[in-house]
């Protein structure tokens, strides 16, 4: 097996949980389906499953930790649900740019708008998505329509607890004026 073929398959094994599970269960069948011959399957199957899974999990957690840095409010409102949603998202998206964590965070926010999460959580994710788009894209102005008054969540620290925000239409605005950024709600 050439190193190129091996790396192509390994990169998928590390990042695709379904393929990994299937390969560990039926290496010959899954290997053949992916164009590997018997010797090639044996070479990869010799890697200890425990090591393979541990490495793949470590990649997932590293990726999640980086994304969380961009989305402190989404992390707060989703709490324990965040990991589950990011796990699902990470199986379908592979960032390609040099700003991979930023790209990951932005795309994850977009995906949350279609996820089964509370409307409040969707609003917070949308707020952080627009914020990232503003700072990442260099627009002069970004306006985000929200269905909840999330100002308290935004202004308090990401770790604080409190009552859930009330449903109320609000607009979050980011504006660049003379190289300075202004942010406010109306």
């Amino acid at each position: 097996m050439s190193l190129l073929e091996q790396q192509n398959f390994l990169a998928r094994l590390y990042t695709d949980a379904a393929l990994r599970r299937a390969f560990l269960l039926m290496p010959e069948k899954v290997g053949a389906e992916n164009g590997l011959n018997e010797k090639e399957v044996t070479e990869i199957a010799e890697i200890m499953p425990e090591e393979l899974n541990f490495f793949a999990e470590s990649l997932f957690w590293k990726r999640l930790r980086e994304v969380e840095k961009f989305l402190p409010l989404t992390k707060k409102v989703l709490a324990g649900e965040l990991t589950e949603h990011f796990r699902e998202f990470s199986q379908n998206f592979n960032p390609q740019t040099v700003n991979k964590h930023f790209e990951d965070a932005l795309e994850f926010c977009r995906s949350l708008s279609k996820s089964k999460i509370s409307e409040l959580s969707k609003n917070v994710a949308k707020f952080e998505q627009k914020k990232l788009e503003f700072f990442g894209g260099g627009q002069r102005i970004t306006i985000c329509k929200l269905d909840f008054d999330i100002r308290r969540i935004v202004r308090q620290s990401a770790d604080s607890q409190g009552e859930s925000p009330k449903r109320k239409t609000k607009f979050a605005v980011w504006l660049r004026v003379n190289r300075k950024v202004k942010h406010f709600f109306v």
């Binding site: 190193l3 790396q7 192509n8 990169a11 998928r12 590390y14 490495f55 590293k62 592979n94 991979k100």
Partner: peptide, 25 residues
């Protein structure tokens, strides 16, 4: 290490087998 292959970005530093072919690469 290698971090990408076949259009997949692994996201972190992945080891290579310690072979003569890998040295050549």
């Amino acid at each position: 290490c290698f971090t990408r292959s076949g259009g997949v970005k692994i996201g972190h530093l992945a080891p290579v087998p310690y072979t003569k072919e890998a040295v050549r690469v």
